[in-house]
Amino acid sequence: MYNDIIFKLGEFATEAMIYEVSCFPSFGLVSPISSGSHSDMDYFTFIDSTTALNRYFLEMASAGYSKDPLDKIFANVRDIGEKAEKAMFIKTEGINTHKGMIFVLGLGITASSKILHDSKDFNEISKLIKNMTTGIVESELKNLSTKTNLTHGEKIFLEYGISGVRGEAEIGFPIVFDYALNLYDSDKKLGQNNRLVQALLGIMSQCKDTTILHRHDYDTLLNLQKKSKFLINSGGFNNLSNLLEINNLNSHNEENCISPGGCADLLALTVFLSKLKEYFF
């Protein structure tokens, strides 16, 4: 039973990562059709990275399936995540394809495994992620004014006060659990590709994506949120008259090197949780 759970969680994580990079239009993200807004990576770079990360997601699932206290589990998984990052950079020759994904999906896998170990309900996963990451923003984003060699996330926190993926984790990824998961699961009639793009649009309409803030500015982020929200509120792919605007938004992002990388991570988490819920709960 233990091995079945661990391997199934790893399977769902790998599927989620491949699904995320396989949908199109993807609004500046890498896909099989285009490298989007990225000149240093393509679809095969992501496949290479995904295969390198598979073993570490299995290790995270194993770490979560435990009676250990949450702080010990989280510390263990952070160590595994650091190893996963190194493996990613080796496989991609220094290209960052999945650093955010390792954190986001890693938390999803670990919390899901712990919930299955404790025989708790699916709705407890978000709460567990909150508990596991309590205080992470304060502990990792404080006293930055005197620090040198700031990361992109740290610079954005200083400039905009946006805590990025750490802040999303600390509140339990509500964009995913309270919104995107239902959007994705309710649109099965659209077919797999369009379901993914629909969910991505929904996430872009709400997410304060620090990847965009790093490469551009707050106005660019607000503009993308506004356009995405308009498309979702008017039905997205359920409204055929939106197809031109959806493609135009994709072209706009590619032409202006806008890439919603943080939204991509949340999309993968959405897919992972959808598969988890359908299989285990």
Results as ranks from 00 to 15, higher is better:
L181Q: 08
V165R: 02
Q225K: 15
D217G: 07
I246D: 11
Q225T: 11
I5W: 04
I232N: 02
I90H: 11
S31A: 13
T14M: 14
R195H: 08
T110L: 01
I73G: 07
V21H: 12
E278D: 13
I115H: 03
E154Q: 15
I258L: 08
T51R: 09
T50R: 04
L276P: 07
F27L: 14
L144N: 03
K226G: 00
T210H: 06
F89E: 07
S139C: 09
S113G: 12
H214N: 11
D185N: 15
I258V: 15
T14N: 08
T133A: 07
L150P: 08
P69G: 06
L144S: 10
M41A: 13
D185M: 12
G108Q: 05
A111I: 07
G108E: 02
I246C: 08
T50L: 05
I5F: 12
S205R: 05
S234P: 00
K72R: 13
N223R: 13
A169F: 06
G167C: 08
T51S: 14
I90W: 01
M41F: 02
A180M: 04
N149R: 11
E154T: 10
E254A: 06
N96Q: 12
G106Y: 10
K8F: 03
E140M: 06
V30F: 10
D68R: 13
A84L: 04
C263L: 00
K130A: 00
T97S: 12
K67F: 08
G64Y: 02
Y19W: 05
S234R: 14
L53K: 02
E159L: 13
A111S: 13
I33P: 00
R55V: 12
Q225N: 13
N233G: 01
C207H: 15
S139M: 13
C257E: 10
N194I: 03
L141Q: 15
K8A: 10
I80M: 06
N96A: 09
M17G: 01
N149V: 04
E278Q: 13
D40V: 01
L267K: 01
S126R: 09
L141F: 10
L158I: 10
